[in-house]
């Protein structure tokens, strides 16, 4: 009751009275004078003790929740149809890759790795990783994880690159986007899930799809913007002087020259998708993450370890393939 005197002095004692008056505190029962040593910070809860008209912190969070629930139907009407294709894409990819027999898909993936990286070593790493995953029966989980990463990365690039290009063209848009990207990148991954759980049905794939995309899109946007802004000013002046249109400049000069940076962004986007797809198992994302979750929930140490190792293998595969592809671009575009 450290702050009673303020309200008494302000003559607001009546205004503070509510039906359920403040309970008597221990110190007032003992009739002790409060020591300055124990002076509490005038937080919501403390002020509520002094004046019941103040909300408690609990009421404040409840009000936030009510507010969100109030706008939820409106948000859902807008976002639900917009994001529905994401659900279809994820479902489609999961069905397609899981249903495909391993003896088609695995050689296909090794071939893709070889074509992208142009390196037998990298193709060998991919082959060995898949053989191990097949051998320990975690192949299907791994393919689920990869399917989700594949869909999310494609969408991140499809939206992230145009966003980055728009940012590179307008300083104002860049200044507006940077705080948003900073926020997306610094928010703890769990925090993404909270509003999404309220917005969408927990069984819908787009729930985790959105969480992954929001988290992983940041690097590709940033590095596209940076890459285009880093294109030599002299070169841009030269192509302007030869009368190229903005579109010609973009497709024939800026994007090719920014490609090493854009690919570095794609590499980071892939790795961040992988990080998020594991956490997204909390909201029913299938894949190796569910095994890790099982390991935590049921204290199955071995399952958790093995699934964790599988995730490391996937991380190594994705990183090596995308880095090797990046290195090839770097080499051919070297100035």
């Amino acid at each position: 009751m450290a702050y009673d005197w303020i309200f008494t002095a302000l003559g607001m004692t009546d205004a503070c009275k509510t039906d359920s008056g403040p309970l008597l505190s221990l110190s007032s029962l003992r009739n002790e004078a409060p020591s300055p040593w124990d002076l509490p910070f005038p937080s919501l809860d403390t002020l509520n003790e002094a004046c019941a008209a103040f909300p408690k912190t609990r009421d404040f969070t409840a009000a936030l929740e009510d507010g969100f629930l109030y706008i939820r139907p409106a948000l859902r009407t807008v976002l639900d149809p917009l994001t529905q294709p994401l659900s279809w894409a994820l479902d489609g990819a999961l069905t397609l890759f899981v249903e495909m027999p391993w003896w088609i898909l695995v050689p296909l993936l090794i071939l893709v790795a070889k074509l992208l990286s142009n390196s037998y070593k990298v193709a060998g790493i991919v082959a060995a990783s898949f053989l191990f995953l097949l051998f320990v029966d975690y192949y299907e989980f791994a393919i689920q994880t990869l399917s989700i990463i594949f869909v999310c990365t494609v969408l991140c690039v499809a939206f992230g690159v145009p966003l980055g290009i728009a940012m590179s063209r307008s300083d104002r848009f860049q200044n507006a986007m940077i705080p948003i990207l900073d926020m997306l990148q610094t928010l703890p991954t769990f925090v993404y899930l909270i509003p999404l759980i309220f917005l969408f049905n927990i069984t819908e794939p787009k729930l985790y799809g959105l969480a992954i995309i929001l988290y992983a899109i940041v690097p590709v946007v940033r590095l596209t913007n940076l890459g285009i802004r880093l294109v030599d000013r002299d070169v841009m002046e030269a192509v302007t002087a030869f009368g190229l249109t903005d579109r010609q400049k973009l497709y024939r000069v800026q994007i090719p020259l920014a490609l090493p940076n854009i690919m570095a962004g794609v590499n980071q986007t892939i790795m961040m998708s992988l990080a998020m797809v594991v956490i997204a198992s909390l909201v029913s994302a299938p894949g190796l993450g569910t095994l890790v979750l099982d390991g935590i929930n049921n204290l199955r140490l071995g399952v958790g370890f093995l699934a964790g190792f599988g995730i490391v293998l996937i991380a190594i595969m994705l990183d090596r393939v995308s880095k090797a592809a990046l290195a090839r671009i770097d080499k051919s575009k070297k100035s």
Partner: peptide, 17 residues
């Protein structure tokens, strides 16, 4: 710019790719 005037630059400004 396309037809009537061409330009040569101090730092060459060739397209490196």
């Amino acid at each position: 710019r396309r037809r009537s005037m061409s330009m040569v630059f101090q730092k060459f400004a060739l397209l490196p790719h």
